[in-house]
Design a protein around this nucleic acid. Sequence first.
DNA 1: TCTACGATCTTT
DNA 2: AAGATCGTAGAT
Length: 195
Amino acid sequence: MTLLPQSFYAREVVQVARELLGMQIRRGPVTLRITEVEAYLGPQDSACHTSKGRTPRNQAMWGPPGHAYVYVCYGLHQMLNVVAGTEPGSAILIRACEPVAGLAWIRRRRGGLEGPALLAGPGRIGQALGLSTRFSGKPLFGTDALQLQGGHAPNRIAVGRRVGIDTARPKDVRALLRFADADSPWVSHRGKLRA
DNA sequence: TCTACGATCTTT
DNA sequence: AAGATCGTAGAT
């Protein structure tokens, strides 16, 4: 599979988010096909981490596109984002995937779950890939441990509000910035999506 | 230092 | 419906 070039990410962030659906994330033996994402638009988006300014945690988001931004949520979940967009400070959260390769490793890291539950939800993606904040700032288009490569785009894209966003400005809470492969069962909170 | 909280997930 | 669990950020 061909690596996505850095230029792929240096475009309008919502466009990149939609086109990220179907692409593949690889780390070692594990390959995942992206089925659900959320776009975070940058400093003007009150739900986006960079709306609070530059901090040690979010510095990767201010850097060039095509790099990972990994942060810890609720003290235990490693959240994978892809820095993208034409202005600094915007990124795309990877919320769900379907397994392509390395199912044994995924199950080893995340025992017990079956079917879509295995990879539905951003915390589970971080776990399946064995991520940590050390990956933050690493390029996704080079020879580093984490790579993004081509795949097959979905036929239909479902949209919805971003999950877990409720203290942001109402306009940003309501924004339809969550995108998913409408035909994939490997998606979280399916009921809140619409065609 | 101290405190409050979070782009979640699991269990009740 | 609530607990787990801890890094981050802002206040002191």
